[in-house]
Amino acid sequence: MDNLAILAQAPVFNLQLLVDGVLIGALFALAAFGMALVWGVLRIINIAQGEFVMLGGYVVVYAAAAGVPPLAAVPLAALALYVLGWLLYRAVIWRVVDQDLFVSVLATFGLSILLQQLANQLFGANVRSVDPGLGTLLLVEGSISVPYVKLVAFAASLALGVALVLFLKRSRLGQAIRATSQNARAARIVGVDTDRVFASTFALNAAICGAAGALVSMTWVIHPYFGLAYTVRAFMIVVVSGLGNLAGIVAWGAGLGVAEQYAGFLLGAQFQTAFVFGLLVVILVARQLALHRRRMVLR
């Protein structure tokens, strides 16, 4: 907590934490948007969400090593993860869609462990990152530094979010996805191929996460074991903002990003993950207490 004094003496540090938090929060929001999509349409909670983020990052790492400019590799990561998502749906996920929630949680948890261990085995346990070489923006006489790539990532994730909403509202497949999420049986009756919708939704979610991971690898670092933290962040954001609420997801994503920056700064970086998971428990308990109070009133 010694750093609290620093914050009081040099208020400009607050600004730095805020900016960093909001910029990284947009990436959390992207993963959360994908989770809300899968949750709403397939009615499963994908624990392997964070692993998709992590794999997207590795696509950029290897593409950059092969000479592709990192920013151009973002669509590549999305495409690769789209294919992976489709394959995973066809191999595993379709079997657990109508089953007990426990089965889908445990199955995707298994996938998460599988992908994480595969990444560890294939790519090594080292922390990786890519430098896109865009330089750094200095504000307030150089006391706040914002790498341009973070701004680019922020803009890209917002643009991706808006594009997704438009896609869901306007396109034929998007409408089918929304119809399925409202009532899968009714959608089948009016001729929607719900199995295909499920597959597209799951693959789309993987692609979104892949793009988010690609941006993470340029703005932060990636590591085979970082996945679960992203899953938990996405889950928290969805729980507090609800399904299908883009503005809420972006706002809570930014809020979570800022809270995490402060926690990392004040408690020390080694407690930052503990903070994320602790916040998860706190949020779920708070939600539970709120629901409980409502039930008491009804009685």
Partner: peptide, 28 residues
Amino acid sequence: PLILGMRGQYFAIATLGLGTVAADLFAG
């Protein structure tokens, strides 16, 4: 009493969080 009031997936994920928090707290 805090987390066993939750149903289904919320309970599962809350306990997942508990395990990781404990590991990180003891490691720090």
